[in-house]
Design a protein around this nucleic acid. Structure first.
Ligand SMILES: NC(=O)c1ccc[n+]([C@@H]2O[C@H](COP(=O)([O-])OP(=O)(O)OC[C@H]3O[C@@H](n4cnc5c(N)ncnc54)[C@H](O)[C@@H]3O)[C@@H](O)[C@H]2O)c1
Ligand SMILES: NC(=O)c1ccc[n+]([C@@H]2O[C@H](COP(=O)([O-])OP(=O)(O)OC[C@H]3O[C@@H](n4cnc5c(N)ncnc54)[C@H](O)[C@@H]3O)[C@@H](O)[C@H]2O)c1
Lengths: 212, 212
DNA sequence: AGGGGCTTGTGAATTTGTTCACAAACTTAG
DNA sequence: CTAAGTTTGTGAACAAATTCACAAGCCCCT
């Protein structure tokens, strides 16, 4: 199968959430034009994105909302539930653990780990914080497919190595540094300071620009 | 000035954090090769990224760490402090308000707003939650240059409209939906569910691929 | 002072991603 | 059943981003 651009995958996510929104409102069909308008792109882009995976529409008519939703869910790997653990039961880890939005999309937070004895046993939405020493065992036993990493930056690579060594293949990190994983492990990093820097770059550039 | 790609700006942030790290360890010079290795890119890419803004290195020698750091800070608009408000004093808003990493990078959270009477007056790292009705007034008075949006998705566009109407030019949203702003307002959205979907796409694709 | 050894800065080549434009395929109306 | 009206799916054209490749510049050594 051809390599799919990350930008395409992001857009598929956007299309899907839009489809689910209008699907919930009872809309039955939609068009590449509609999807484009709400996804901030063009109808050609929508059709090209979808064309990598098959042909899901009816010419002259558009797309069936429930059908296309189902296809996109399947493509994105949302046709099943995923068990996710959170490593680092601090401020951001705690907020994520209590966030209901993940479960809605099939991501179940079924484990939390921390190294601080004061955090052990603490409950977050029905999940107790366990000692970090059990993380490796639990991953090896296949309890989780995805790990969310919310430990301080100085410990992040160490935990990544443990996760990778125990066989995890997907990690979402919030630590603001560049982590390394082998090529068969997918790592995504959410770096909020970097997002803010994108904003200040734009603010600064704008005011120094002569013409817009 | 030529248009700079978002990917370039992201990489500049990465270079900067690496420079600050090695700078703190006392390293005085570095090379495009070093920056590439730690930023997960190539040396040619590093040089090309920098070349959009000037020429900061010495041939045969590399870059002065403090000099290049200063240039990048300037380019990214970090040569000053920024005042940031958080709208929505919930789980994620609270975690962000208490996060020390922003202040380190020159982003001061100097205001928080919420519509829930129970949240009003609550303190987060020395900042009291104010009533949302005061948001517009405070932005108009120039108190903030950046707003972080952490309200439920159904209220997010409404708050964006208030922010934009009051004159804000940069917004970082955590609400998982597509928001619209006029072209002179920069909006970035952090969508964590979408990041997880990027992971499940990779997990699903990998296992269905015949060859890697 | 000159030569060897590095590393930058940058056009040119290549690759990747987006947009165009239109035939094909479907619906609906008559 | 045919014609008019839509909207898809997709090669081809275009644009953007990345990588290549090398001259230019600098340091250091002799
Ligand atoms: N809080 C935020 O809003 C925010 C924003 C952006 C980035 N981040 C990043 O997210 C990460 C967590 O931030 P936070 O604010 O939640 O910090 P925090 O200090 O509140 O939480 C970190 C948690 O990790 C635990 N921990 C430390 N080392 C560990 C280890 N080796 N194994 C297991 N657990 C360990 C600590 O006991 C603590 O509970 C940091 O990398 C931070 O830079 C946080
Ligand atoms: N918690 C997470 O980890 C997480 C993860 C991903 C995305 N998000 C998104 O971030 C946003 C906030 O999530 P949360 O978990 O913190 O929710 P939350 O319910 O804990 O907090 C939302 C806060 O916004 C306030 N609010 C609601 N309407 C408002 C308005 N009109 N004006 C001002 N304040 C208002 C509420 O009173 C509440 O305090 C949501 O859009 C959510 O989807 C959260």
């Amino acid at each position: 199968m051809k390599r799919i651009a990350e930008s395409t995958v992001r857009r598929l996510s956007i299309y899907l959430s839009f489809l689910e929104e209008i699907g919930a409102r009872g809309v039955l069909t939609t068009s590449s034009d509609d999807l484009a308008r709400l996804g901030g792109t063009t109808s050609a882009q929508v059709r090209k994105d979808l064309s990598f995976f098959g042909s899901f529409g009816k010419r002259g008519l558009g797309y069936s909302v429930p059908e296309l939703s189902a296809h996109l869910r399947e493509i994105l790997g949302l046709g099943r539930k995923w068990n996710v653990c959170i490593v680092g039961a601090g401020k951001i880890g705690g907020a994520l653990a209590r966030y209901a939005g993940f479960a809605e999309r099939g991501f179940n937070i079924t484990g939390m780990y921390d190294s601080d004895p004061h955090k052990l046993g603490k409950m977050y939405s029905g999940v107790a914080v366990q000692d970090i020493v059990h993380l490796e065992r639990d991953i090896k036993s296949g309890k989780y497919q995805i790990a969310i990493l919310t430990v301080p930056p100085e410990n992040a690579q160490n935990i990544v190595d443990i996760l990778v060594g125990a066989g995890i293949k997907a990690i979402l990190s919030f630590a603001p540094l560049q982590l390394t994983t082998p090529p068969d492990v997918t790592l995504r990093t959410v770096n909020m300071a970097m997002e803010l820097e994108g904003l200040t770059f734009a603010l600064t550039k704008r005011s120094s620009d002569q013409q817009y």
